[in-house]
């Protein structure tokens, strides 16, 4: 019995659809149209300039620097956050006392407002009164004391450390649930074969979690194209764009320099990158479903 039930179905869908179309789909489509204009945002006057915004964009060194920084955040997440999360997940999945509490703590930063996190870490990095410099002073490493966020050379690394502090817990939780999906007999067999923890991880866990890790890598990229709050609060883009990422650059163009047409072109670029990533991710997740 597969009767179509259009009236009832659309009755229940109607509120969600109207909200979604008006405040999600329509803006995401209109931005494509807006990207073809020179437009200051507040004034009604728009001048059609075709794809000129995109031409300028791809030779705009500041934008390319922002793209580079964004991709560096993504890459760093892949090589630091994901492996660290895997180690934590393996430990937390063991039946040991206290693991429930540890799991709660590891994920805790994910629920705190990123503005609050940014302010907390800004203070930790404070050159005079920040905890990090104070600790370095106490243990006799005065030489390493530093204006962490103020120095062009360390600002980006400092922001990365904070990003790791927030997101490692997130990937840990995903790994924990994925690891539970591997049947325990495989680990028994590995034990019989004399594998130690490290070998088990390398030869069994990682190959079994291939798809999960693939999805995570995509998350790292799409996440870095979404993040805004932390960097905006901690450095506002930093000196000589040292910590500028695509989203902060977009914000600056749209609401500080009033180049809304140009900023729309940046939006379209981010949107297209997201689309490619969604396609990849859905494909990966389907592969998992079929196996």
């Amino acid at each position: 019995m597969r009767k179509k039930n259009n009236v009832v179905a659309y009755f229940f869908l109607f509120p969600a659809l109207i909200m979604f179309v008006l405040f999600f789909i329509y803006p995401n489509l209109e931005v494509i149209y807006l990207s073809l204009f020179k437009w200051a945002g507040i004034s009604p006057k728009k001048t059609f300039i075709g794809f000129y915004n995109f031409q300028v964009l791809f030779s705009d060194l500041d934008f390319l620097k922002a793209v580079f920084n964004t991709l560096m955040i993504a890459f760093q997440s892949m090589v630091v956050q994901v492996p660290m999360a895997l180690i934590l997940a393996i430990l937390l999945n063991k039946k040991m006392k206290g693991n429930g509490t540890f799991s709660t703590i590891v994920f805790l930063p994910m629920v705190i407002s990123l503005v609050a996190v940014g302010i907390i870490w800004r203070w930790l990095y404070d050159p005079e009164y920040g905890a990090i410099n104070l600790i370095l002073g106490k243990i006799g490493l005065q030489g390493l004391q530093h204006a962490w966020l103020g120095d062009v050379n360390t600002a980006f690394l400092s922001v990365l450390a904070t990003i790791n502090w927030v997101y490692i817990g997130f990937y840990t939780v995903i790994f924990m649930s994925a690891l539970k999906g591997i049947s325990p007999e495989i680990f028994e067999a590995a034990k019989v074969d004399g594998f130690n923890e490290f070998q088990t991880t390398l030869r069994i866990r990682i190959p079994m979690l291939k798809e999960t890790i693939g999805v995570m890598f995509i998350m790292c990229i799409s996440g870095s194209f979404k993040s805004f709050d932390l960097i905006w609060v901690m450095t506002g883009g930093g000196q000589v764009n040292s910590t500028e990422i695509v989203t902060t650059y977009l914000y600056r163009m749209a609401f500080r320099r009033m180049e809304s047409g140009y900023a729309s072109a940046i939006s379209v670029t981010i949107f297209l990158i997201c689309l490619v990533l969604i396609a990849l991710q859905l494909k990966l997740m389907k592969i998992t479903a079929q196996e």
Binding site: F24, K226, L250, S260, S264, S267, I270, F271, C274, L277
Partner: peptide, 10 residues
């Protein structure tokens, strides 16, 4: 999966 920032201006 779409970033909220892209629809900010419209």
């Amino acid at each position: 999966y779409v970033a909220p920032v892209t629809s900010l201006i419209p």
